[in-house]
């Protein structure tokens, strides 16, 4: 018995969510008296692999085959993960509730005849029966879900578990996932990488603008603040619909659902559909000239005022903070 964690790396470095997942799995393993095996797929150096041990992994299965990370072939990846689960005799598989986790976890659950609970926010409230708390109605409510199968697959909502360092040392083993070349059917024709730009759904800081920004020509300030804070830029639906910003930046109930550490809503009134996509953020900061804007009901920190006056001050203040 063990708990298997599907980790993700970007260009050979683990994403923060991978350490969150391992921390979560380590706590779960402690409660159920078992061990944690982390699966790493792609080209990750040994020093980097060892970091998974720092967060509580007992064993690391290392799959060096880059074909998986190059193609992200959902079927091949699911097969590899399911084979790792079986090799380890794992009873729980843990993924992130992000693009890749959502793509693979359901396939793995079917392969293992396991119940899947997606968007889990905490450790189980009970182990027998196994009952997990998850988000429903796009952040407007929570549900408790009982898993009726012996094997379980979980996708963990981002930012719902703190990183916990341990004194653990992990054993690293090469693993053959037993997936043939012929099983990869996804062919990548073109990749447009904006190097260094953080994926919106993974970003810890998101700076977002609404109609109050008045036009695409004013986004320079939003980009500057995001860059200073190492974050991503986003926008509200009207902004994407107007074509001021690409649709890929639209956050909200019908756009991207995000959960950063801090979300800056600048010139965004905060319609219920918008809040649905961002209310899992740890901290919401709102700047709006209308004191009655619904965004202030969801926000933790707010400024009622002209965004064109406030934003340059914020940029200056961050620069100053960074210089200390």
């Amino acid at each position: 018995m063990s708990i298997l964690v599907y980790t993700e790396n970007w260009d050979g470095k683990f994403k923060k969510l991978s350490f969150e997942l391992v921390s979560y799995a380590a706590a779960l393993a402690k409660e159920s008296n078992t061990t944690v095996t982390a699966l790493s797929i792609g080209n990750v150096a040994e020093d980097e692999l060892k970091k998974l041990g720092d967060y509580g992994a007992d064993k690391i299965l290392n799959v060096k085959n880059e074909k998986f990370t190059e193609t992200l072939d959902n079927r091949a990846l699911a097969k590899a993960v399911a084979n790792a689960v079986e090799a380890e005799d794992a009873h729980v598989a843990v993924f992130s509730h992000n693009n890749l986790g959502k793509a693979i976890a359901p396939r793995v659950a079917v392969k293992l005849d396991a119940g899947l609970v997606s968007g889990v926010v905490a450790l189980p409230v009970s182990h027998d029966p196994c009952t997990l708390k998850k988000k429903v109605f796009t952040n407007k409510a929570f549900a408790y879900v009982e898993v009726l199968t012996d094997k379980k697959v979980i996708t963990l909502a981002q930012n719902s578990y703190e990183l916990v360092k341990t004194e653990n040392k992990a054993v690293i083993e090469d693993f053959d996932p037993k997936v043939d070349e012929s099983e990869f059917t996804t062919v990548v024709k073109e990749t447009n990488k904006i190097t260094g730009k953080v994926l919106l759904t993974d970003a810890e800081v998101v700076v977002s603008g609404g109609r109050g920004m008045k036009g695409p020509e004013n986004w320079g300030m939003i980009e500057e603040l995001a860059e200073l804070l190492g974050g991503a830029t986003a926008c509200s639906r009207p902004v994407a619909d107007e074509g001021w910003r690409p649709h890929s930046e639209h956050v909200g109930q019908t756009g991207k659902i995000i959960a950063p550490n801090v979300y800056f809503a600048l010139g965004i009134s905060g319609a219920i559909q918008h809040l649905g996509g961002v209310s899992s953020s740890k901290v919401i900061v709102a700047v709006n000239k209308d004191p009655e804007a619904p965004i202030f009901e969801a926000a933790d920190y707010g400024i009622v005022g002209d965004v064109f006056k406030v934003l340059p001050q914020l940029i200056e203040a961050v620069k100053e903070m960074k210089s200390h």
Binding site: D73, N74, R75, A78, H97, N99, L100, K102, A103, I104, A105, P106, R107, A109, V110, K111, L116, S118, G119, K134, K135, V136, F137, T138, A143, T155, T185, T186, Q253, T254, G276
Partner: peptide, 23 residues
């Protein structure tokens, strides 16, 4: 947008044993 499962598409692909692409 109700139960936020994000699962039916992937499960269906696996049951039918066909490819799937997400996002």
């Amino acid at each position: 947008s109700d139960y936020n499962g994000s699962a039916v598409g992937g499960m269906l692909a696996e049951i039918l044993d066909i490819a799937s692409v997400s996002a």
